[in-house]
Amino acid sequence: MNHHPAAWGRPLPASASFDMYNPQFSAPKAAPAHQMPVAHTQQPLVTGTSVLGIKFDGGVMLAADNLASYGSLARFKDIERLHPLGPHTVIAAAGDMSDFQWLKKELNAILREEQALSLTDSHPSLSPSNIYDFLANLFYARRSKMNPVWNAVLVGGWDRVKAETFLGYVDLLGTTYSAPTLATGFGAHIAQPLLREAFEAKAGTDGKGPLMTQQEATAVLDDCMKVLFYRDARSMNKYQIATVTKDGVVISDSKSSETQWGFAEDLRGYGAQTQ
């Protein structure tokens, strides 16, 4: 019998019954496990729409708008879907926002622990690819338990050891891939062709030419976010851009695109007009 005070456990509340023969199992329980269903995410509820990513000369950028939708309702209009992780990594999430909040909490805990280790030891900091591999393993393990983390996540970063940019995708199935330009969801259809066109205009189809500048990358992302706002009914004209270079992470303030709706006056054939 272990008499150490650490093994005493917490005192029983009045509601708990004491099991004389199995005292270690006497902790209070809400309900027997077999009566409660196991809760898994079956569908996303409060969702963020597409996120974009592009590499440029000396860094990588991610873009996401500030909307979290509840179905077709524009429910939360000040949500940050770009999240920095340490000095040289940013993640951007589409999909279920509560799963994303949980994910941020988990990752922050890991980074806090890593930072604590680095204070007392020559402990190398987590590189973007370390964080990406962790996410890929987490997402794949959760899908294999039929309990997916309902997100598509872009990881952008600067690898200090290799002195190169990083951009990767991982989703709720555990599917992973990398490319110089990435987009999730609706953005994969609408924005990815524009991003690829802009990237290949300078770098060439083999990607070996010069990369676009930071200004050019910002311009193409602004353009893509505008097109997405015009065409994606789950988007909002308020978005942020995260930039990672060797100097660290900068997440911009929210901004809006200039939009033109004058043409809507002249649309005929559907809607409220009779003529």
Binding site: H40, Q42, Q43, R143, S144, M146, P148, L173, T175
Partner: peptide
């Protein structure tokens, strides 16, 4: 009614 999560894809 539950919409089962499909854990597979074809790449």
């Amino acid at each position: 009614t539950q919409h089962a999560f499909n854990p597979y894809s074809d790449n």
